[in-house]
Simulated assay, not measured.
Amino acid sequence: MPGSRDLDPSSSPRALLGAELRHAREKAGLSQEELGQRLFVSGSFIGQLEAGTRRLQAEYARLLDEELGTGDFFSRNRGAAAKSKYPEHFAEAAEAEARATAIREFASMLIPGLLQTPAYARAVCRAYQPTAPDEEIEKRVATRMERTHILDDPTKPLLWAVIDESALRRVTGGPHVMAEALRHIIDLARRSRTIVQVLPFDAGAHPAMQGCVKLMDFTDAPPLAYLEGVGTGRLDDDPATVAEYRFYYEFLAASALSPKKSLALLEAMTQDYDHEEHA
């Protein structure tokens, strides 16, 4: 049985809980697939719990305690690992994003969160919550900007974004905010920190017109797909489903402008927003 002490929230509780799960599983002589069968989940789901890329929900914590004979250890300690600064529907995806080695994202209606500027994020948060106090908006903006720090590393994770032209044409926060937002994307692309492609209007219909798709790869866990809508989100680890969305992403990338032509379009749009602002 894992140690009797509660996990320390200041010491990466998700990672500690995952390590304890792996220890308890191996002590019970079970593979990830075998334990998954007992919980009616996939072996990859158990692997993601052990790697810390998935949150341990209450029902699974209870079942783990029963199957592994760990008393109430996982039920008692899951609370420390479940705390998050993000909305419930996005918390698990945000935490997985921070551990990913590669992120591929298609954005249909707005600039992806990892590429946003504070002013653009502020306009988006205000649109989501038009009656919220300024303090709440600033708190959400700070949380969103904190996510972007994963790009401080010059090489990882790989970030490849395909952005629908509609997201770049929608004037969010005004021409000045849009010009600044596009300059930020251009800077990241010029520094080879991210790959950016624009899916133009003339590409026509495509398989992801109803929402965004985010694919995440990890060194120590199976890949994940995240689908997001208005106030909702779903993280999927089913290999067939992830493969299907990966095909969608590859189709979108093939239909989009090349990185070089995308950069030229972004620069032209930035000039247009500058002229509009001055006018």
Rank of each mutant, 00 (worst) to 15 (best):
M1Y: 02
G3L: 04
R5C: 04
L7N: 12
P9K: 04
S11F: 01
A15F: 06
L16Y: 05
E20G: 02
H23S: 14
A28D: 01
G29Q: 03
F40Q: 11
F40M: 05
S42R: 09
S42W: 01
G43K: 02
S44D: 09
R54I: 04
E59H: 09
R62A: 07
L63Y: 10
E66S: 11
L68W: 11
F73N: 08
S75N: 10
R76S: 01
G79R: 15
A80L: 05
P87G: 01
E88L: 12
H89M: 02
F90Y: 15
E92S: 13
E92P: 12
E95W: 10
A98M: 12
T101L: 01
A102C: 11
R104F: 06
R104E: 09
F106E: 12
M109F: 13
I111S: 07
A119C: 03
R126A: 09
A127Q: 02
P130F: 01
V141P: 10
D153N: 15
D153Q: 13
K156T: 14
S166E: 13
L168Q: 03
T172G: 04
P175G: 05
P175D: 05
M178I: 07
A179D: 05
A179N: 04
A179K: 04
A181Q: 15
A181Y: 07
L182N: 11
R191P: 15
S192L: 06
R193N: 03
Q197P: 02
P200V: 01
G211W: 05
C212G: 15
T219S: 14
P223Q: 11
P223C: 10
E228V: 01
G233V: 13
V242I: 03
Y245R: 04
Y245W: 08
F247K: 13
Y248N: 10
Y249C: 05
A256H: 02
K261D: 15
A264V: 03
L265F: 07
L265E: 12
A268Y: 14
A268F: 11
Y273C: 04
Y273M: 06
E277V: 02
